[in-house]
């Protein structure tokens, strides 16, 4: 890890409980800006929970208590004057199962704009431009430019997942959280999403939760290994896989458990 690199997200003493079950234990982590960070670990280790902390969407699921501090771009997101709406605009999430909204492709892409801007600010030209730019950025423009009125739920899964990423882009997010974005996709779809992530890197900070260690190794710059709600190891990806410092990490990346 390069300590001088600016960090997109830092946490300090982060604890989280679902009811009485503690899902995150004293998490202290600093995730680099503009790179891809992978979070790996066996099921139930808290990686999705941690991901959901970064835009506080955890709180929508009920029964969640959090203590500690999370700074996104330097700002503590638990400060009382932080607007969750503005936070989630800047920190978007992509899910395991592609979840396009049951409206047209076009409306999916401009959904965020429509939500965050009064109607009169949104001229047709501005929306059209946003759609073209976002779809171009995720590589769907060529395929879909004549089918913008098609129902998003009728697309192939891979296209749906790209669309879910495109849906975030018009809001100019700083961070994109991806929760196992490829686990519902086939090999080609996975490759396409991975390539897209690598293209988006630099412009956005990407944080991906994955079960697939090979995927973490392929695409991530840094890697966080979690176990039982704790961060065991966080290093550059090659280092974590080749010279893990902790024996638990070593056993996990070699596939002895998980």
């Amino acid at each position: 890890m390069n300590p001088t690199a600016p960090h997109a997200i830092t946490t300090k003493g982060l604890n989280l409980w679902y009811g009485t079950f503690q899902a995150l234990v004293d998490v202290n982590v600093a995730l680099p800006h503009g790179l891809i960070t992978a979070m790996i670990g066996p099921s139930g280790c808290g990686k999705t929970t941690l991901l959901r902390c970064f835009n506080r969407v955890n709180e929508r699921y009920g029964g969640v208590t959090t203590t500690g501090e999370i700074r996104v771009l330097g700002r503590n997101i638990y400060d009382p004057d932080v607007s969750l709406i503005e936070l989630r605009k800047a920190v978007g999430m992509v899910f395991q199962r592609p979840n396009p909204l049951p409206i047209s492709v076009y409306e999916n892409v401009v959904f965020g704009l429509r939500i965050h801007h009064p109607r009169r600010e949104l001229s047709r030209a501005r929306l059209d431009e946003a759609v073209e730019r976002a779809l171009t950025e995720v590589g769907l423009w060529g395929d879909l430019k004549d089918r913008l009125d098609a129902r998003a739920t009728s697309l192939q899964l891979e296209q749906q997942q790209k669309l879910c990423i495109a849906r975030l882009l018009p809001l100019k997010p700083e961070v994109i959280l991806l929760d196992e974005p490829c686990s519902a996709l086939d090999v080609e779809g996975t490759r396409a999403i991975e390539e897209l992530m690598c293209e988006l890197k630099g412009r956005y900070t990407l944080i991906i939760v994955t079960h697939n260690m090979a995927q973490a190794r392929r695409i991530s710059d840094e890697c966080v290994f979690m176990l039982l709600g704790q961060i065991i190891e966080h290093r550059r990806t090659e280092a974590l896989f080749l010279q893990p410092a902790d024996s638990r990490t070593a056993d996990y990346v070699e596939g002895r458990y998980g």
């Binding site: 969750l84 709406i85 989630r88 199962r97 049951p102 959904f111 939500i115 975030l168 809001l171």
Partner: peptide, 12 residues
Amino acid sequence: SFREACWNVGAT
């Protein structure tokens, strides 16, 4: 999942 999609772009 529809609700999640909305929450995560900051919809009220």
